[in-house]
């Protein structure tokens, strides 16, 4: 088994709303896969379909070599899920919920449970309703991370966690990956995605718009170049893939599509490069571009 999750052409409609519109997603076994997209793009709906809580109208989905709808129960024993908005039973203590969910999944590593409680600094004796949002999230995280499963499906698991806990969470996910577990991580926290994810898929309006490693995605975007030359630049603005050229005497600044970087650099060297600063696109720019296109599409 080399793919843990394989989804293609998934469609799900709610009345007139088309929540998923031909979504594709492939998660390889053993990787941490970032699942990104603006609010309402269909991330949670996809996850619900993968969990067999909803049935897709069309398209295929395979999870750990099974059918998420038909083999739901058997598959659920091999995965753990953390919802984005954890709702706990008001009269059960956090410890009880952790044990319950773990046992329903078929077992809990007691030592890991205690270890996680300590690392996440969570008091398991409090009743469900007295936890803050972040602490409710921790309850679900401990229950999921202490379970002996192959796949973790985490839907914005760190919303509400403080930065200290966020870094504990990142450590835990890295440990999980090192044990060979697969993680599907839906997140809006770019630093988290950048430090954890091997590959990412960006979805928008129910469709996948990009998939690949962060390196590959960066490749699709522009690099900013600032150069000081021996003489004023010559014909840079006319090169393919070069944008926003600004020339001040011997100084030049421009953005270039990363795949045309080589051509642009060759052109620069003909003018004698004295200094060169190249800034790779930040993830933020990358995502904003995809997210904003979404706004343009729906408008």
């Amino acid at each position: 088994m080399t793919t843990a999750i394989s989804v293609s052409g998934l469609v799900k409609t709610f009345g007139r709303t088309r929540a998923l519109d031909g979504l594709d997603l492939t998660v390889r076994t053993g990787e941490v896969h970032g699942f990104l997209g603006p609010n309402g793009a269909g991330k949670s709906t996809t996850i619900r379909v993968l969990l067999g809580l909803m049935r897709a109208d069309s398209g295929t989905a395979t999870l750990l070599d099974g059918d998420p709808w038909r083999d739901a129960t058997a598959l659920h024993r091999k995965l753990a899920y953390v919802p984005g908005d954890v709702s706990l039973w008001p009269n059960l203590s956090g410890g009880e919920v952790i044990d319950l969910l773990g046992r329903l999944r078929g077992g809990l590593d007691q030592r890991r449970r205690d270890d996680l409680l300590e690392r996440f600094d969570l008091d398991p004796r409090k009743k469900g309703r007295t936890y803050s949002k972040g602490n409710r999230q921790k309850v679900a995280l401990v229950a999921a991370l202490a379970s002996d499963v192959e796949l973790l499906i985490l839907d914005e698991p760190t919303s509400g966690l403080d930065p200290l806990m966020e870094s504990v969470f990142q450590e835990c996910v890295i440990e999980e990956r090192d044990r060979g577990r697969t993680v599907l991580l839906s997140s809006h926290i770019l630093a988290e995605v950048e430090s954890l994810c091997d590959r990412v898929s960006i979805i928008r309006a129910g469709r996948t718009v990009e998939t690949g490693t962060l390196g590959e995605l960066r490749h699709l975007t522009r690099t900013s170049i600032t150069a000081e030359l021996a003489q004023p630049p010559n014909g840079i603005a006319n090169l393919p893939g070069v944008h926003d050229v600004r020339v001040e005497g011997n100084r030049v600044r421009f953005d270039v599509d990363t795949r045309e970087l080589d051509t642009a650099l060759r052109a620069l060297t003909t003018s004698g490069v004295r200094s060169l600063t190249s800034t790779p696109p930040t993830l933020e720019e990358l995502f904003l571009r995809h997210y904003q296109e979404d706004a343009a599409v729906t408008r």
Binding site: S93, G95, E96, I98, L100, R125
Partner: peptide
């Protein structure tokens, strides 16, 4: 409201 138990009783597993 009072604090609850640290772990779940054996009955709470189904």
């Amino acid at each position: 409201s009072r604090l609850g138990p640290r772990t779940a009783p054996a009955t709470l597993s189904s």
